[in-house]
Simulated assay, not measured.
Amino acid sequence: MFAWNPLLNQSGPTEFVFRVFTAVPEFQALLFLLFLLLYLMILCGNTAIIWVVYTLSSLHTPMYFFLSNLSFVEICYTTVVVPLMLANICGAQKPIPLAGCAAQMFFFLTLGGADCFLLAIMAYDRYVAICHPLRYTLIMTQKLCIQLVAGALALALFLSLQLTALIFTLPFCGRRREINHFLCDVPPVLRLACADIHVHQAVLYVVSILVLTVPFILISVSYSFITLAILRIRSTEGRRRAFSTCSSHLTVVLLQYGCCALVYLRPQSISSVDEDRQFALVYTFITPLLNPMIYTLRNKDIKSALKRAFGSPGAAEAI
């Protein structure tokens, strides 16, 4: 494990500042309202899913257990970034200390990694449900579900700790450096280093492969077996329901993994700072927003549960 103490890095800066999206006051106000609205929608949508799954005993199944944990991670994930981002949009550039930047990067990477691992776990859950329906309850026990979620969080925490610790042992030039981004993400921070970063980039690629490529391969393998199993279903209605259940998850997977791969797995020599910011906006705002929308609009169980919960006071079942 890397030893890390930012205070010992005497050549490093005491603070970073983020480059604002625009200096035009009218556009700043518009962007502030837009991102604030998206953030509130993310909070409300994901909180609604957590509340419904927790409240209604009919949704106490592995699939909804993983979905509620995914929603909780999405809330924390955006909260690590958005409040500070809004503060920088609506006012002058507010510096973030070195330790604060490291903390934001650590939590952002941890929650982002946990998000990717949870999506892979959800694919495995769908594989067991469709390919081994008679053994589903025997395989996907409550104990296993808790272990999978805890393992995903622990692995993400371990990998992000190692990567963050390695990056913040680098020397940075000057006492105040401008990050051409809206958060302390790995690529823009690495660009500010006053030292050779080939080893750090190599470690970033290894971590990215473990967090993105390996889970995506597992998801692809799971859905290959799922597709074969669905095609063997004789009932047209049965095939439609199976595809409907999986398509919601696949939509989130492709958006999340695709944008993250373009940021973290693309060679730095051909990457663009502006493109990285655009992709980061997608997995910071769009994916956490689409998660509750897709699962709510395309999932009959969630839709009916929300209608009962908000439609009549006695509809919700207490645990």
Results as ranks from 00 to 15, higher is better:
2 F>C: 09
6 P>Q: 02
9 N>T: 07
9 N>L: 10
10 Q>A: 10
11 S>C: 07
14 T>A: 13
18 F>L: 13
18 F>Y: 15
20 V>M: 05
20 V>N: 10
21 F>M: 02
22 T>V: 13
24 V>A: 13
24 V>W: 06
24 V>S: 09
26 E>K: 15
28 Q>V: 00
31 L>R: 01
32 F>D: 01
40 L>Y: 07
40 L>Q: 08
40 L>I: 13
42 I>D: 05
43 L>R: 07
49 I>C: 03
54 Y>R: 15
55 T>R: 06
57 S>M: 04
60 H>T: 08
60 H>K: 06
65 F>E: 07
65 F>P: 00
69 N>T: 03
70 L>F: 14
72 F>R: 09
73 V>R: 00
73 V>W: 01
76 C>Q: 10
79 T>N: 13
80 V>C: 11
81 V>N: 03
82 V>L: 00
82 V>Y: 03
87 A>Q: 10
90 C>Y: 01
91 G>V: 05
92 A>H: 12
93 Q>F: 02
94 K>L: 15
95 P>V: 01
99 A>L: 14
101 C>A: 15
104 Q>G: 02
106 F>I: 04
107 F>G: 02
109 L>H: 08
111 L>N: 14
116 C>W: 09
117 F>D: 08
117 F>L: 15
118 L>W: 07
118 L>A: 03
126 R>C: 11
128 V>N: 00
131 C>H: 05
133 P>I: 05
133 P>K: 05
135 R>Q: 15
138 L>M: 11
138 L>F: 09
144 L>T: 03
144 L>E: 04
150 A>L: 11
152 A>H: 00
152 A>C: 14
153 L>P: 00
153 L>E: 04
156 A>V: 02
158 F>H: 00
163 L>A: 09
163 L>Q: 10
163 L>W: 11
166 L>C: 10
173 C>N: 14
174 G>M: 03
178 E>R: 12
184 C>P: 09
187 P>Q: 11
188 P>I: 14
190 L>M: 11
193 A>W: 04
195 A>R: 11
196 D>L: 13
202 A>K: 13
208 S>F: 02
209 I>L: 06
211 V>N: 01
214 V>P: 03
217 I>L: 15
217 I>Q: 06
219 I>G: 03
221 V>Y: 09
221 V>M: 07
223 Y>T: 04
224 S>P: 03
229 A>W: 05
230 I>Q: 08
232 R>A: 13
232 R>Q: 11
233 I>E: 12
234 R>W: 09
234 R>S: 15
240 R>H: 12
242 A>T: 13
245 T>C: 13
251 T>K: 14
253 V>D: 03
254 L>T: 12
256 Q>E: 14
256 Q>D: 13
258 G>W: 01
265 L>V: 00
267 P>Y: 10
270 I>D: 10
275 E>T: 00
277 R>M: 05
278 Q>P: 00
279 F>H: 12
281 L>Q: 11
283 Y>W: 12
283 Y>C: 08
289 L>E: 08
290 L>G: 07
293 M>T: 12
297 L>S: 02
299 N>P: 02
302 I>A: 02
303 K>L: 15
309 A>S: 15
311 G>N: 08
313 P>I: 09
315 A>P: 01
315 A>I: 05
319 I>P: 11
